[in-house]
Design a protein around this nucleic acid. Sequence first.
DNA 1: GTCTATATGTTGATAGAC
DNA 2: GTCTATCAACATATAGAC
Lengths: 189, 189
Amino acid sequence: MEISAAQRRLLEAAVDAFAEHGFGGTTTRDIARRAGRSPAAVYVHHASKETLLYVISLEGHTAALSCLQRAFDSCADPEARLRAMVSEFSAWHLDHARLGRVIQYELHALSDEHRAEILALRREFQSLMVAALDDGIAAGSFDVEDVDGTARALLSLCIDLARWFDPALSRHPQALARLNADLALRMVR
Amino acid sequence: MEISAAQRRLLEAAVDAFAEHGFGGTTTRDIARRAGRSPAAVYVHHASKETLLYVISLEGHTAALSCLQRAFDSCADPEARLRAMVSEFSAWHLDHARLGRVIQYELHALSDEHRAEILALRREFQSLMVAALDDGIAAGSFDVEDVDGTARALLSLCIDLARWFDPALSRHPQALARLNADLALRMVR
DNA sequence: GTCTATATGTTGATAGAC
DNA sequence: GTCTATCAACATATAGAC
């Protein structure tokens, strides 16, 4: 299903509004106003406020997962691979802080079916990180006692950036991504 | 200002509701129902829905900060101190996951003045963690390049637990707190 | 596709009886 | 303090003109 320019504009307006006020605190009028449209225009292009969040969550998770997968595929060496994964996944949450905030903290507002679909996607992040750790352990590069827990912690380090990062206030995101990668390598060896 | 039993019950109901549906997605009727009261009873004990969130945020941040401060004070040795801080602060977010979710992710719904007050409190978490790292560096126990960034990452590790932890599904919070402490020490040496 | 106008239900908060 | 009843504003979503 293709997404038209008008749909895209409303989705971007919804991301901004949801990130700023939360799903429940956002009105469809606000979304319409941010997109420069009338309140009725929202429903020409999207079925409901909830489906806006669903499309945002689906696209956001897919993009973030692609980012992590690309980093996973980019290297064979376990250390370089983990560095790439943490650095790129951190950078994604810094470059898309508002989108990241919505997809990480507004899951509760999805319908049960939509939420289940998104939660299934989320398990793949953990699987990828576990695979990267297992590889490093098998190669003798990593010393990790609790693989699941360490994978969770590595993802936490990246995801939590979206909670507080403000591109208008914070120092260069590249330094943050690099620091997280440095810390990640310390955590596994 | 003392808080009566009726006020307390409504505050606890509000924490549950805000954690489940977000501030904007929660109705005062829902809060009243959870507390076993009529919708009007909310306004006998609290001035507004926003002041409920404010009191929750203030008490929550104060409690979490006390937790971190107690851990800071509990040890003189830099390594034992950092272990205590990360372990106790993690455990706090596991034991108070719903409260943690509200105070970490619903700040946007506070009035400007209330939010400024809470943000001032939040800077003390960072200061405490920086002090713990500086001590360890001065004592020659820690090797940390970016003190501010590492302190931020250590707090992230603890705080992000509140995002996903579900006491009904995850059975070993102590193991999570201990793992975070182990990872923290790896991050600084 | 665009809009204005509006149907229909819900919201935060209040009035006033007890 | 408790409640029922309610207000005025606002919500999501739709109807129908253009």
